[in-house]
């Protein structure tokens, strides 16, 4: 590795007697990746292995299907998955539509303008930094003593939101989740939108196409794989989100991640210790399916937007 005599790396094909030395060097080159692999094995691959195998083990480490059966037959577990999926679908759809509109509105402006920079930075914060703090944001807005709740009660004397309790239900979760989905959509979709070449628009215009015709026949078809891919990413994002829901809902577990929380924290019934792992495996499967679809779509997207 440290021989100073070899000036050039791989490209110069070693020939004849040098080949064996080349093979040895190639092997030693692989050693350079070992520290990285060792680290990710312990802190990423091994935990994943524990989840996947643990889902099929009982407390003594014997193979069993009882954890998986418990998840599939326990209505509370199954319902939490269904609610999580429904919530992710709704918020991915809302986030995708409004996020794409926002991205379009931002892309119409100057690329180096203050508006664009601020919106992108703020989106980064809200999409990935929020967590617990977003739950507080919505409690301060729509909670029992929230700004809007009090404002409506004071000025109109009405209480259409029934005192803020709705924020803890499905509708509340959907509103809060959409709040971080829109910024994520902007971050993911803006580059695709900016990949549209102005020449395409000009060509459409000069052929007499209306704005609608352009989006119907040119912009839309080019962007639709990106849009669908981004929506899938949003789905996975909402499905894996934990912090906001955990901060908002401290009792009961309507969502799959919250079921995992109670499985982890409540030292469940003996013999059920691995149900949490079966739940976790279920989440991995859902996210993996979605991300595979996403990767397939990305492959189509890159054809035009290069």
């Amino acid at each position: 590795m440290t021989d100073m005599l070899a000036p050039a790396p791989a490209q110069t094909r070693p020939t004849g007697p040098a080949t064996r030395r080349g093979a040895g060097r190639r092997l030693s080159a692989y050693l350079g990746v070992v520290p990285f692999l060792a680290f990710v094995t312990v802190f990423l691959l091994w935990p994943t292995y524990i989840v996947v195998t643990g889902a099929f083990q009982d407390d003594q480490g014997q193979f069993t299907m009882s954890n998986v059966e418990a998840v599939l037959s326990g209505p509370a577990y199954l319902d939490s998955f269904l609610v999580s999926i429904a919530l992710s679908l709704v918020t991915a759809a809302l986030g995708a539509v409004f996020g794409a509109l926002l991205a379009w509105a931002v892309a119409e402006g100057r690329p180096d303008g203050l508006l664009r920079r601020c919106v992108v930075a703020a989106s980064g914060v809200l999409a990935q930094f929020g967590g617990v703090m977003l739950a507080f944001a919505f409690l301060a807005t729509f909670g029992f003593n929230g700004f809007i709740t009090l404002l409506l009660a004071d000025t109109l004397g009405i209480d259409p939101l029934s005192g803020g309790g709705w924020i803890y239900g499905f509708a509340g979760l959907a509103v809060v989740y959409t709040y971080f989905q829109i910024p994520l959509m902007l971050i993911v979709f803006l580059p695709a939108l900016e990949g549209l070449k102005p020449q395409w628009r000009e060509a459409s215009d000069s052929l007499g196409g209306s704005g609608w015709a352009y989006w119907r026949h040119v912009g839309g078809p080019i962007l639709s794989p990106s849009f669908a891919g981004a929506a899938l990413l949003l789905f996975a994002n909402a499905f894996s989100a934990y912090a906001t829901a955990a901060a908002l809902i401290s009792q009961g577990s309507p969502l799959a991640p919250l079921q995992i929380r109670s499985a982890l924290t409540s030292e469940t019934v003996l013999g059920q210790a691995n149900v949490g792992k079966a739940l976790a495996l279920g989440m991995v499967i859902v996210v993996a399916v979605v991300m595979t679809l996403y990767a397939l779509l990305q492959r189509r997207t890159s054809k035009w937007l290069r």
């Binding site: 312990v42 802190f43 990423l44 091994w46 935990p47 994943t48 292995y49 524990i50 989840v51 643990g54 996975a236 499905f239 894996s240 934990y242 991640p257 995992i260 929380r261 982890l264 949490g276 792992k277 976790a280 989440m283 991995v284 996210v287 993996a288 991300m291």
Partner: peptide, 18 residues
């Protein structure tokens, strides 16, 4: 890129024993 497919809530289940 793997951690994107493994939600933090799942990672924590597997990493607790570690």
């Amino acid at each position: 890129l793997l951690p994107l497919t493994i939600p933090a809530i799942v990672l924590v289940v597997g990493i607790a024993p570690i």
